[in-house]
Design a protein around this nucleic acid. Structure first.
Lengths: 205, 205
DNA sequence: GAAAATTATTGAGTTCATTCATTTTTGAAG
DNA sequence: CTTCAAAAATGAATGAACTCAATAATTTTC
């Protein structure tokens, strides 16, 4: 039996995630020292590095948990989408955005996105990238579903449009987290404005 | 007269940029220590920090020089664009992309983009962001020009489409620099595929 | 259930970006 | 040409992420 070790490991992992989440939210990512996080999780610095490759990898572990929730929330919207292309796309995008800042600060997002670009090969960075791809797939799937239901023109590539819609959203989200004063409402309306012509292109007048 | 001081300052600035460009290209951004860069520029570590806020700011200074060239190259294409929307957009995008890796490695791009996201308020980061906005403007201006010439439908917002096209390109470029094996040709064809429906939307059949 | 083998933890040590008190250089004034 | 003030340069000191050789805990073997 190898039970004790497994449980202790899961426990330490959980304590580290919890401690880091608290500290990152409280004083910001930059101010939380590994020493602090390790101490709060009742673990040594060396042990921290048995669980996460880098400080950034820990942040990405936290952020990917959030992205997974966003992905799940999106699934329910896919099940029966609004009949209008614009409403469906805005609904999905709105669902993504409303989740964005519940648990994570702009600084956390900024740092996480920066790390996933700068160190794409760290374990949780790869996971983050994969989740982004799954979000893209979800947008594409929504469009394909609308086509299947006859709510969108079938002669336009769902894949192409879906990718463009998501990439645009992602880039705008980056702009959003780069600017501390920018409100979520401004992001949402900008993205709706930009997405509208694409919805028009897809809709069966 | 205050000439000597000015000249020495410009000189040191130039030596630092040159030394850093060489070292970044040679051994990579991460491996180049401030001490090395300062030594190569015949300057002390402390002096380095009189010229640039951080190591990342120095990289962004180098990268923005490159983006400025890309922007200038784009202007000439704007002067008389191809009559087909698709050709015009692909031409501009192609011009951007062909410049991308001449002077800068993928690692340099990755790091630069990461820093501009993570530290948006550092001086050269702000400049990088502004240049991105100018590239967006350029794409929008191209579309507007095509509309003026009757080569694109006037009833679609040039701004909206231009922003979407550039944001998509930017996001795809990020994916490209994240993946060392991905060739420029793959990026180019993916972006052309994605952009094609938008060109279709704009074109006066 | 003791010994061996495996797997984890530990924290002092290393490295590197960044800072800052001191010294040096330049420009201005008399 | 000195003297003084302002501006810049300097490099030793600081701080934080990350490493690694030594130690400890768990599991396996007999």
């Amino acid at each position: 039996m190898t039970g004790l070790r497994q449980k202790q490991k899961a426990d330490r992992n959980h304590r580290l995630l919890r401690a880091a989440t608290d500290l990152f939210r409280q004083g910001g990512y930059a101010s939380a020292r590994i020493e602090d996080i390790a101490a709060a999780a009742e673990v040594s610095v060396g042990t921290f590095y048995n669980y996460f490759d880098t400080k950034g990898d820990l942040l990405l572990a936290i952020v990917t948990l959030e992205v997974e929730e966003v992905l799940t929330a999106g699934q329910s919207l896919l099940a029966n989408p609004p009949a209008s292309v614009a409403d469906a796309l805005h609904g999905l995008i709105g669902s993504y955005l409303e989740h964005a800042l519940i648990y994570l600060s702009k600084e956390m997002w900024r740092t996480a996105m920066a790390i996933s670009i700068e160190h794409p090969d760290t374990p949780f960075s790869a996971r983050y990238t994969k989740l982004d791809a799954m979000l893209t797939d979800q947008v594409c799937a929504l469009i394909a579903e609308l086509q299947r239901r006859g709510h969108a023109r079938p002669d336009v590539s769902a894949r192409d449009i879906g990718e463009v819609v998501f990439n645009n959203l992602n880039m705008m989200f980056i702009e959003f987290v780069k600017s501390d004063p920018m409100p979520l409402s401004a992001l949402r309306s900008a993205v709706e404005r930009q997405t509208a012509p694409l919805a028009g292109l897809l809709s069966t007048r």
